[in-house]
Design a protein around this nucleic acid. Sequence first.
DNA 1: TTGTAGGCGTTATCAA
DNA 2: TTGATAACGCCTACAA
Lengths: 335, 335
Amino acid sequence: MTRRPSVSLKTIAERAGVSTITASRALRGMPIVNEKTRRQITEIATSLGYVPNRIASSLRSQRSGLIALIVPTVAGSIFSETVEAISRRLVAAGYQTIIGESTYDIGQEQAVLESLVQRRPDAIIIAGTNHTPATRTILEALGIPVIEIWELTDTPVDSVVGFSNFHAAYDFTRALIEKGYRRFAMASGPVEQENRASLRADGHYKALAEAGIDPGAAIVIPHFLGILHSGQSLLAFVRDHPEIDCLFCTNELIAIGATVQCRRAGIDVPGDIAIVGFGDVEACSIIEPPLTTVHINGTEMGRNAAQLVLDRLGGRGAAGARIDVRYAFRWRGTA
Amino acid sequence: MTRRPSVSLKTIAERAGVSTITASRALRGMPIVNEKTRRQITEIATSLGYVPNRIASSLRSQRSGLIALIVPTVAGSIFSETVEAISRRLVAAGYQTIIGESTYDIGQEQAVLESLVQRRPDAIIIAGTNHTPATRTILEALGIPVIEIWELTDTPVDSVVGFSNFHAAYDFTRALIEKGYRRFAMASGPVEQENRASLRADGHYKALAEAGIDPGAAIVIPHFLGILHSGQSLLAFVRDHPEIDCLFCTNELIAIGATVQCRRAGIDVPGDIAIVGFGDVEACSIIEPPLTTVHINGTEMGRNAAQLVLDRLGGRGAAGARIDVRYAFRWRGTA
DNA sequence: TTGTAGGCGTTATCAA
DNA sequence: TTGATAACGCCTACAA
C-alpha cells in the first residue's frame, strides 16, 4: 500500500508545460485541443497513473454523475430486476447509481432520501407514489428529474413509470371469479401507507364486492420472513380455513411459500385450494406446480425509467411523462 | 420544481451571525460548540431546508464516505445476499456503497474499478482473488483497505474473507463418491480466468482422479441464461448421456434448472440421476425435490467484509486479515 | 469557544 | 488553440 503523492491535473500540466485547464480539456476529449498537445498530455497522464478526481469535478461542474435510486429492498429479487435494468443503462451512459432501501416504510424512505440527497444526485428514481409530505417537498425542491416507479398516479412529483396495482388486482380477481372461485382469502404483506400491498388488496376487495362475494379471511405476513417460513404460517392459516377455494396473495413470494408448504403437507394445489400470486420472479416458474400470478415487467420499468432520466439530463424530453408498462396474467399450475 | 437558490453553510452562518466554521461544527455535532449557539444554528438550518453538500465535504476532508463494491453481477440472487449484508452494515455506519458489476470478466472488472476509483472510495470490497495485473497494481497503489471476498488466498492484496472453492468442491465430491456415485458429469458456467467455476471444477476433478474415477462428460452453460433455459440444455445433455449417475453442477442455478426440467421430462431425480449444486440461494429449497448442494454463507461474508472495512477506517485492525467462513453440505432431495 | 486563512482538484468564464 | 482567474462548499490547521 504505497501512499502515492497523488497526481493531479496540476502535476500533469506542469510536466507537459501547459496550463491545468488545457490538461483538463485534453483528457476530457474536447476537440479544441491540439492533437499533438493532447497526445503528449495523455501519455503523461497514463505514465503517471493519473486518476481523475470526480469529487472535485462534481463540485465545480455541479454535476455529480450520480443517480439516486430508492426501493423498498434489493433483497429477494422482486425489485432486483428493476435495479439491474436501471444500473445497466445508466452505467453505459457514464452514470453511477447509488441505492437506498426504504424497507417498505415511508419514514425510512425519507431518511434515506435525505442521506442520498447530500451527494447531489443528478436525478432520482424512487419506488412508489405515496411519500411523506416532507419527502414530497424535498423531491419538488430539488430541481432535478424525479421518476416514480412501480405504480401510476395522476399527480406525480414529476414523471412516473409503472402500472396500476389497483387495477391489476381488480382485473385479476375478476378473472378468478370468472374461473369459478367464490370462497377467497387474502394473504398479504403489511397493508399500510397506501403501499403496493394495500392497493392490491383494495383492487381485490372491490372486485369481490362488486360480485357480491364475501371478502373472506385475511392474514398478514411480515416483511423479510423468508419464503418457507411464510409458507408455514400460510399452511396453518389454510388448515384453519378449510372452506377457502382460492388464496389470493398480494405478492408472489408469499404465494410460492404457501404453494410449496401446502404441497409438502399433502394438500393438493390447485385441487384442494387454488393459490395465486402477484409479481413474477423467476422462482414462480420452478416450483411444482408453477405459480399462477400477475406478471410485472420490472426490467421494462427499469429501462424506461433510466431512459427518461437520460433524456432529461440530455436536454431531451420534459417533466410530466407517464409510462404505463401494464401487466399480464400468467395462468400456470396453481389456479 | 422550484430552483431554490441553494443554501450553504455560509448562508446559515450569516443569519446566525457566526462564522461558517462554527456553523459547520455545530451541524456536525462537535461538542466544543456552545449549546445555545448550536440550537440557533440548527434551527436556522432546518428552517432554510439546508442540505449539507457531501461533495464539498468529501473534497476537503479527503473522505468520500463511499465504499466501492465489485461483484460479478447483482442479478440472480447469488451475490445479492452478500451485497445486502454489506450495504446494511455500512449504511448504519454512515457510508454509502457504490456497486460495480464485472459480469464475470476480469477485464470488465478492471474497467469498472477504474471508473469507481475516480470517486475516491474510502475502501474497496471486491469478489474474487484473481485480477488483471493492472487491477492489482491499482488496488495496491490506492492506499485504502481492500477486502477480497468469495475466495481465499495466501496472497491477498490486503485482506480476504471467503472460503476455498477448490476444497469445498473437492470435499463435496469425495462425499458423493462415498455415497456410491461413480459415473459423474459436470455442468458449469464458463470456466476461465481461474474464476470460481474453474476452482470448483478443479477440486471436483482432483477428487475424482484420486479415486480413479473417470471425469466424465462436461457441458458449459453461458452466464445469464436463466434457470429454465439452462435446464433445457441440461436435460438434452442428460439424455445424451444416460450412463451418468451424478450431475455435478458448479453453481446452484444450473442445478436447479436441471432438476426442474428433468423432473418435468419424467426423469426421476435422484432415482435415475442425482443432481447436486454449489451455493444455496433460497430457490434451492423450494423445488421438488429440494436441492442437495454446498451451502455458502453469503451474508456472513458480507457482514465480515463490512466489519473489516469499518474496523480499518476506524483505526482498529490491520491489513492482512484472513477470514474463512467455510461451507457446509446440505443433503436434501436430489442426491 | 470562536474565528481567519486557505486549499482540496477541478472546471466555468472570460480574455488573448 | 491556450491561458489566467476564480469559484464550487466545505473543513484542516492554526490562532485568538
